[in-house]
């Protein structure tokens, strides 16, 4: 609609802004800018649990709205599409859909076991100099890179 953002915000602008946001949420509310916890609270709310942390649900909603702000309003890049072009070229839809679902389930389960994901451990935890978060981050980076290379070999270089 307004279309003022570049095709991709360079890392040296986006990264430091994210750093400021991490400091901001800690400075205002003593809370990490994580994401998997927001899923946990959203699901607790939907299931009618009384201990659901409501502000984390609004944060969850905010993530979606922020995506709309960046990809629809500030830059006209949204549109109905699979979002997985490279994966769709390597696999037929009947394989790609269950593969993404299985991968997402695995990462959700792993994030719950580890107590956080790329944002909670990878960025906020590392920024707090937490040895546990550094361990989680080093581990998921290693297995993610290894998995990507294995996928590349298994698909004969298509991925």
């Amino acid at each position: 609609m307004i279309d003022v953002l570049p095709d991709r915000l360079p890392w040296f602008i986006g990264g430091p802004i994210l750093g400021v946001l991490i400091v901001g949420l800690f400075a205002v509310a003593n809370q990490p800018l994580g994401a998997s916890g927001a899923y946990v609270q959203a699901s607790a709310l939907v299931r009618g649990r009384h201990d659901a942390v409501v502000w984390r649900v609004w944060y969850f909603v905010g993530l979606f709205l922020g995506g709309v702000l960046a990809t629809v309003i500030l830059r006209e890049s949204a549109g109905v599409r699979s979002g997985y072009d490279a994966l769709r070229e390597a696999f037929p839809l009947g394989v790609a859909v269950p593969l993404v679902f299985a991968g997402a389930t695995l990462l959700g389960y792993g994030a719950a076991v580890a107590g956080g994901c790329t944002s909670g451990h990878g960025m906020c935890g590392t920024a707090q100099r937490s040895p546990a978060s550094v361990t989680v981050t080093a581990t998921f980076m290693a297995t993610a890179i290894a998995t990507t290379f294995i996928l590349g070999i298994l698909t004969g270089g298509a991925l």
Binding site: L106, G108, G115, A132, T139, F140, T143, L151
Partner: peptide, 21 residues
């Protein structure tokens, strides 16, 4: 559990090409 969870998360992240946020 940090190593175990991190390892599984990484595999899923690579396959799904996305993470929670």
């Amino acid at each position: 559990h940090h190593v175990k969870g991190g390892a599984l998360f990484g595999i899923g992240w690579a396959i799904a090409g996305t993470c929670p946020a």
